[in-house]
Write a protein that binds this DNA or RNA. Structure first.
Lengths: 336, 336
DNA sequence: CTGTTAGCGCCTTCAA
DNA sequence: TTGAAGGCGCTAACAG
């Protein structure tokens, strides 16, 4: 290890040491262009000896790219919280793997969706070569406007015919229908939906659920707004039960929501599934570890992540892409 | 919105439009240097009109920085999985928030710890201004060697006097002691540790736990190796119980591990905490939602993340830093 | 096969 | 207060 040599910071330092030009060094290290094999080997040896690596930032600037894909969760100041949602973080992990396989880094830049041009600002700052948005939140208009001028962008979320951007997501409506049918088949008479309709995904789950109920049951179905955080969900459920409500069937907007409801029910002596059946959504890893194990509508997280990345790569290559909807499956375990 | 104008890609485009030099535009947009207020306002207005933003990549190259901090999980091909661990992903979310507050992006580059110079390679590629390593895994030697030449690096993990790098982490040994004392106080006579000692954090938990047991109990304590994934943990626990083992007290290396053990126990008719008390480690959000609610050794995830970032910022400013250990607390709930 | 040259988009002395 | 020029570290024609 050339102990006495000064630090080799750039390709020109290396060129001086090797007695060649910078472009020769570049060719040797990148493997591009033609070069005498012996020269290449020699330069690579010197580079290794000095622990030299090409500066990726400079390389990317020159190549007009950044080598990074931005993964954005448009959830405002709740992002720290949101990332602790098992579904999102699993998605995130799979995205990281898939992007890496394609040679891209994953850049997480926390965005506060303030005003209506935060997305365009992010795009124009040139920090990434493309964008993967996880969830539409309530930013549909912003997404549509950005999609007008900017292409390498895919969105995990609900499909809608008039969206001008490419989405990948589950058929949430059908997911809701599956949950409803299952609870009906169990003979439930008094239902409740724990969730909200602020984001399109959740709105579709709710709509599907309600649509599959007979009129009389639907009219009696409670809609209990819950927050994404476990604490929030649990507090909502506690208040609901404390008010004397005793549904015999519950559909929750997410597995975390379902687990929270079950925990709250326990405090009120409501047994699951004996007194109350509970269906979740997502099928996170922990769903099979809770007791009772969770009956839930499964989303293919890994498949979704891979699809997001595949579509984005196609866009980066100049191709056109179409939105994709995954068909959800009901996984019947113990809670319903 | 200048609908007829061509795209404004660089400050030289903008300079031409405004009839000034590029340096004037630079000064106007960055706010650095001195400039006539009227000129500044005028240029900013033109920039806004064209939706122009400085190219961050070029800016950073010129400033000799990247504006990003690398967050690395040295877990090889399991990284996708690892990120689904609630503890890690919560840590990750808090890191994202803290880094953003300091004006840094978070770059997640999946690293396969192959050979012994992956870290130095990453450092030299110049992709980030600093590194936050989450967990030491079994890469202590690599970390020490990198720390010899490279400073902006902090590590979440176990402290050791001879580490040459700065660590932030819980006092895992004491955590293990707390768990042992609690189980002893409950009168447990037949104990088991579900975990492994491959990473320093876990080794310390195990050591603390065992050290606090009376000799006779320690000699009878089962050491059951489990994997980080829920499936892996559960399979190990199932095999353990299937072999007829019936401990009355269990300490698991993580909450996910504890939940897995409880799930497996259920299959064998082992009631928790009636037949068997279980203590976890971490206190993830879901720990209070399981039934029974988890008794666990709490780590301060948010505080840890903030400390990691604070120390890294201090290093980036040229300062020296010292390792920090958080004192863990035992949170007694229902499982033990 | 290799060197020279001209930038990628930006910031910052140095002069005017 | 502003402009001109040089360069961050790298790549890619174009010559030779």
């Amino acid at each position: 290890m050339g102990a006495t040599t000064a630090a080799v910071r750039s390709i020109s330092d290396l060129a001086r040491i090797a007695g060649v030009s910078v472009s020769t060094v570049s060719r040797a290290l990148t493997g591009k262009g033609t070069l005498n094999q012996a020269t290449r080997d020699r330069i690579r040896a010197i580079a290794a000896e000095h622990g030299f690596r090409l500066n990726v930032a400079a390389q990317n600037l020159r190549l007009g790219r950044t080598g990074a894909i931005g993964v954005l969760l448009p959830l405002g100041h709740e992002q720290g919280q949101a990332l602790s949602d098992p579904f999102l973080s699993a998605m995130f992990g799979y995205l990281a793997s898939a992007l890496t396989e394609h040679g891209y880094d994953l850049l997480l830049s926390r965005i506060l969706p303030q005003g209506d041009h935060w997305l365009e600002d992010f795009v124009r700052s040139g920090r990434t070569d493309g964008i993967i948005m996880i969830g539409q939140s309530n930013q549909n208009a912003v997404l549509n406007r950005a999609a007008e001028h900017y292409r390498p962008m895919v969105v995990w979320g609900a499909y809608a015919p008039d969206n001008r951007y490419t989405t990948v997501g589950s058929d949430n409506f059908t997911g809701g229908v599956l949950a409803a049918r299952h609870l009906l088949a169990r003979g439930c008479k008094q239902l409740a939906w724990f969730g909200h309709a602020d984001a399109p995904e959740f709105a579709a789950r709710q709509a599907g659920f309600l649509s599959a109920l007979p009129d009389d049951l639907r009219a009696n179905t409670a809609v209990v707004p819950i927050h994404i955080t476990p604490e929030g969900s649990r507090a909502s459920a506690q208040a609901f039960f404390a008010a004397g409500n005793r549904p015999d069937g519950v559909f929750a907007a997410s597995d975390v929501g379902a687990i929270s409801v079950i925990a709250a029910a326990g405090e009120f002596g409501i047994a699951v599934p004996g007194d109350m059946a509970v269906v979740g959504f997502d099928d996170i890893l922990l769903a099979q570890l809770t007791s009772p194990q969770l009956t839930t509508v499964r989303q293919d997280i890994e498949g979704g992540a891979r699809m997001l990345v595949d579509l984005l790569m196609r866009q980066l290559a100049g191709g056109k892409t179409q939105s994709v909807q995954f068909v959800p499956r009901l996984i019947v375990r113990q809670s319903a």
